[in-house]
């Protein structure tokens, strides 16, 4: 347990040090949300209607941006070999690395979402809905992405391949995330129905991804 706590602290520290890229995701998120109204035009009703979708797509792309470094830097400097030789199971190491990665990159997106939602003319209910759906949905993106990151860890320039591998599997989270966010501001679907499915997607990916990613890392040798 102490080893895992030390790992969590190290990951957060690395994300916040220079070159760690912890803040990059939020800045990228901000840029995507900012350029959407320029492309769509200043129609406030339209923006408010598609705002949750823009926020979700921006969150998805920002999450992918940092994910290729999840195992790659440890693979390159040899840390991954030593983590495999530790007493702690590699599955637990992967779980903790993913949780720390989410705390460093996913959580800031969630906290920034209400602010950025204002720029897309979302009202109070929609702001609350999109923030709640991102809070429970972004872990699914991180964990699904971790499998792709582990599979491509030994490839040069595996980042793009990882995005291509991972994006199709994030579609369910995207669908239920956006529909939960939209349902919060009215509509025929009750909020809880897509929201609970989104929770289930996150929990299921959290349970499965550590095993899949650890198996991929071991066979990468």
């Amino acid at each position: 347990m102490k080893a895992l706590a030390a790992l969590f602290a190290r990951e957060l520290r690395l994300a916040n040090r220079a070159g760690g890229g912890g803040a990059m995701g939020v800045v990228f998120f901000l840029i995507l949300v900012t350029i959407a109204p320029f492309a769509i035009g200043p129609d406030l009703n339209l923006l408010a209607r598609i705002g949750p979708a823009i926020l979700w797509i921006a969150a998805l792309l920002s999450t992918l941006l940092g994910l290729d470094r999840l195992f790659l830097s440890d693979h390159e400097d040899g840390s991954l070999d030593l983590l495999e030789m530790a007493d702690t199971p590699l599955e637990a190491v992967v779980l903790v690395k993913c949780l720390a990665h989410w705390a460093g990159t996913g959580l800031p997106l969630v906290l920034a979402a209400p602010l950025f939602g204002l720029m897309l003319a979302l009202d109070g209910d929609a702001l609350w809905g999109v923030t709640a759906s991102l809070a429970v949905g972004t872990p699914a993106l991180t964990f699904i992405g971790a499998i792709g990151a582990a599979l491509t860890v030994s490839l040069r320039r595996g980042g793009l391949l990882m995005a291509i591998l991972v994006l199709p599997f994030t579609v369910p989270a995207l669908i239920f995330g956006v529909s939960a966010a939209s349902a919060a501001s009215g509509g025929t679907v009750p909020f809880l129905t897509p929201f609970l499915i989104l929770c289930a997607l996150s929990l299921a990916s959290m349970a499965l991804a550590p095993f899949a990613a650890a198996a991929a890392l071991r066979s990468g040798g």
Partner: peptide, 11 residues
């Protein structure tokens, strides 16, 4: 102790 030192440059 391999060719890669498993040290993080930022730490």
């Amino acid at each position: 102790l391999g060719h890669a030192e498993a040290l993080k440059g930022a730490l």
